[in-house]
């Protein structure tokens, strides 16, 4: 299981929407939205449409797993 905690603020609404549309588990968790995946959790920046300051802060809520990459195009977390 890979888990990403996304701070529940308007700046991250699009990221949560894309995670939901992708089929990842979404659960409200206090101040955070818990996004879960069986295996890799991958989000494409094009789909999220976030400006740089928001995109590159996407992991600020923390995660459980391993960061594979967070670059200009994609965020990828995996188990481990």
């Amino acid at each position: 299981m890979t888990t990403l905690y996304v701070l529940d603020i308007p700046e991250f609404d699009d990221l949560v929407r894309v995670a939901r549309d992708t089929g990842y588990g979404i659960r409200s968790a206090g101040d955070y939205v818990e996004v879960t995946a069986d295996g890799p959790l991958v989000l494409a920046r094009d789909a999220v449409g976030a400006r740089p300051a928001i995109w590159f802060a996407a992991l600020t809520g923390g995660y459980s797993g391993r960061l594979v990459h967070l670059d200009e195009d994609e965020l990828c977390l995996d188990e481990g």
């Binding site: 888990t3 990403l4 905690y5 968790a29 206090g30 101040d31 955070y32 818990e34 992991l59 600020t60 809520g61 923390g62 995660y63 459980s64 960061l67």
Partner: peptide, 13 residues
């Protein structure tokens, strides 16, 4: 830091 934050966020949740 992000992994530790994830643990704290899980506790908070």
């Amino acid at each position: 830091m992000w992994r530790r934050k994830g643990e704290l966020a899980r506790d908070h949740a």
